[in-house]
Design a protein around this nucleic acid. Sequence first.
RNA 1: GCCCGUGUAGCUCAGUGGUAGAGCGCACCCUUGGUAAGGGUGAGGUCACGAGUUCAACUCUCGUCACGGGCUCCA
Length: 628
Amino acid sequence: MMSSTQSPQKNVLAQSDPQTLLRIRHTCAHILAMAVQTLFPETKVTIGPWTETGFYYDFDRPTAFTPENLEKIEAEMRRIIRANLPIIREVVERDDIKAEIAALQEPYKQEILDSIPADEPITRYFIGSPDAGFTSHPEVEPSLIDPVTVPPTAVWWDLCAGPHLNSTKEIHPKAFALESVAGAYWRGDETRPQLQRIYGTAWETPEQLKAYLKQKEEAKRRDHRKLGQELELFSIQEDAGGGLVFWHPKGARMRLLIEDYWRSAHLAAGYDLLYTPHVANLELWKTSGHVDFYRENMFDPIEIESQEYQLKPMNCPFHVLTYQNRLHSYRELPLRWAELGTVYRYERSGVLHGLMRVRGFTQDDAHIFCLPEQVAQEILGVLNLTEKILSDFGFPEYEVNLSTRPAKSVGTDDIWQLATDALVEALNTKGWDYVTDEGGGAFYGPKIDIKIKDAIGRLWQCSTIQVDFNLPERFDMNYVAADGSRQRPIMIHRAIFGSLERFFGILVENYAGLFPLWLAPVQIRLLPVSDAQRSYAETVAQQFQEQGFRVEVDASGDRLGKQIRTAELEKIPVIGVVGKREVEQQTLSVRVPGGKAMPTRQAGDLGALPLSDLLEKMQVAIAHKSLF
RNA sequence: GCCCGUGUAGCUCAGUGGUAGAGCGCACCCUUGGUAAGGGUGAGGUCACGAGUUCAACUCUCGUCACGGGCUCCA
């Protein structure tokens, strides 16, 4: 992380002591399971860890939990909390506990017990005193339990490494909430039984819970799927199929601006641009290894004149073919080739999500072919370009990961060492802190991943820089070295946005739809107070247009109040009111959206400005790539 | 793909075993209005799609597709 600015909401949440929070959440998970087994005794327990915002617990039960069930469970949890039950840790003997679990008929717990290594201590945690003498699973019809009159006297325990609170009362009954039910596979393995996961959130204080819920609300308000529809940026249509994006005029305008910027930035950084086909002979994908390693993510091949063609899921083999078209000298390297390449990948229907996960998308891809001794310098160049581009789009903060050689990999020790050292050297020269993910690299080379931080503190992985020893080998790429010998070039894959669609979605959420002036599809809208000012408004619009601005005149004939409301809802960055006074004084009364349209920003009435002043102010905002 | 939920007008959503409603938007008319909704009239729907049950299905059942919350995977 490079620097740190935090929103006020985040600070409230950050006040908690992580250790305390962890115990609260872990204990909440246990209380949840206790409540569920009290109300639904036939339910089998599995695991219930804490999460970044709360906790969950996975249950096995033949019937699904309903939202009404969740309310009852939550009430039962409050009852347990208010009862101030002690939480007691006990170290147990494996054989003893095994027998107890068997008696309770908890197959998942049995499996967990069996997976605990022999040399590790086995602990369980009681809720309620074990001396109370009640069984863990009261033989009571759930419908007979009255949450008000029947006290939670039952003792419940779970096999668990801890840690936990000392008493249920240390949880504030108004600082937790159950959130949702979802399917989840036992041990995350889809060949194993599907369980029901109940999610909850838990905090130290009710204020923190409130702040969390508010932030959740804020994320919902920024949802790119909602804003994309409201602002007419894009759509995904059932008639065409899931995961396929239609860019509407306003979204397409923004994409054009993004692409133009991207091309200029790359040309300025010494890249050349490529265009390559969308399909190619399947043989190419066999050579590249994608058919062996990536088939499950590829569309099925298309047969044409008894040849099989493959819709491309990646651009790299095309760039390699471009390189292979003739022999290259070491004097030409590095070659930096970039392409906005549209790829198609088969994604399972359940994973599609707005623009964030689609089946057809455009990568801002580039491949650098270079000499071994150029790698560090090239990586540094990529880091510099990445920082320049991301910060121009309003993302100046990053979290950086370096992933090193995994157990299963291709390439010699020497080449891995060289490449990994080069990545580290580049990061150090750049002065970026990073976290090393040992063994987290691709089988074909080490990589750097960059996550950007958005306006409400969420991290998104966009950029990736990967060294590849595999493709040059598979395609037998080489260059002629100074001594006339043939040598293998190093190949670097890199993307800065990752996917244009996804990055666009992140942009929408980051700016909540109110874009910086240089990206806004409509930069200024002129609102005539009455029809009498329409022709003046048209004349002024003409002048804006001549200066290269994206301008509109509101032609609705609505009253001013309504026109302003419409413009604010559409998040037009600059609103220019034209009435009698403005016509006489040759000015515009300028207003910028805020308030209901943009709660984080004051609605601003900038008063009457001479045209030239406004033009200049707007030009400055564009030059700074800032909000107006 | 799997689990749960959803699918009704361009959008956001009510609704019922007897062939459909609101608000916004749109069109037209009146109003020419000064910083977040002026008034009126009207058009607009094979109730996602396909089967089945029924005298009768938008409603019940099954299947398909899409979307949402997750699992897994990932840009």
